[in-house]
Design a protein around this nucleic acid. Structure first.
Lengths: 166, 166
DNA sequence: CCGGACACTGGAATCATTCCAGAAAACCCG
DNA sequence: CGGGTTTTCTGGAATGATTCCAGTGTCCGG
């Protein structure tokens, strides 16, 4: 069973279809992105990229499941490997909320932050409207060479808050 | 060789002895704190509290080792249990830097933040001088009920930065 | 000083993630 | 279009921090 279902020639496969359908204006097609980042284009990586695009703040497990639906089968390591490579290449951003498995998102380059639900672990984006990242310059840095300031908001998502209120 | 570096007064059941010796100004004696929080006073808990006081941003493992030096032997679970209870009672604060084991600190109640070294994982405190925690009120909260905003700075500690520069 | 609640022990289990070695692709080159 | 090399994928086992469990021991109110 080495027949490859994703014909290489025709771009009519979900790859480009998603670029139009997924309608993420501005975000180029997966294959393009991979190539542009100097990474090899493999079915797995494309599928991982699409999975993260389709499931906003996907966990590695979400990605594994989504990719399996798309390709039939993938090893867990292939997914971790792809996620790692894509994160390294700045095509994905990794979020690691304490106590919850890591999540990945496609929004990269801007310094936005996240709200994490203490109960179910769901994550949502938060744009830091306070102009120029005020917290980015701590008073005393203890000699540390700081390269990133991340802000995480903790609380309850609408669902969990409602469930708790009743 | 179990010579205690922080020579407490005498062999008197370190519990109360430490209250005087360890005596960090402002912070009440361990036993007092426990009682005040409605927790039972046990040798283990007192030792855990002192361990965290002695090792600024101690990991659970640090605490286990320190407590074993003080008491002779403790089960790992007793330590985790104590850390959990103390954190619950707000006598300790837990810090969980992504990718590194959790750390505990005694500074509670004020909203200060942390710098984490990407290389060795060491943590240092950072007081948010930007007055009134500007990031605390995100623009859109997506309906989340937010109860805490934490800021984490990532970078390299002086040692690791120096090691890398050479 | 007694009893019931709570804490501790030791061992096994969990979960996300990583390591490993071999097989299978993907790309560069002619 | 067909090697050859490099990178990626597979499957299985390992890691490391933390938690679960059942039984035993300890603390503290009366």
């Amino acid at each position: 069973m080495t027949t490859d279902p994703q014909a290489t020639t025709s771009g009519a496969t979900s790859v480009d279809a998603a670029a139009t359908a997924g309608g993420a204006a501005g975000v180029p097609a997966p294959a393009e992105q991979l190539r542009g980042a100097g990474l090899r284009v493999t079915a797995g990586r494309v599928a991982v990229l699409e999975a993260v695009a389709g499931v906003p703040h996907a966990t590695a497990d979400d990605v594994v499941r989504t990719v399996r639906e798309a390709l039939g089968s993938v090893s867990v390591q292939a997914v971790y490997d792809a996620l790692h490579a894509l994160t390294e290449a700045r095509l994905l951003r990794r979020i690691e909320p304490a106590g919850h498995p890591a999540r990945y998102e496609r929004r990269v380059g801007d310094n936005h932050h996240h709200v994490v639900c203490r109960s179910c672990g769901v994550v949502a984006d938060v744009d830091c409207t306070v102009g120029h990242a005020p917290c980015l310059t701590p008073s005393s840095d203890h000699g540390f060479v700081i390269d990133l300031a991340e802000v995480t908001y903790w609380g309850l998502c609408p669902q969990c808050a409602a469930a708790r209120a009743s």
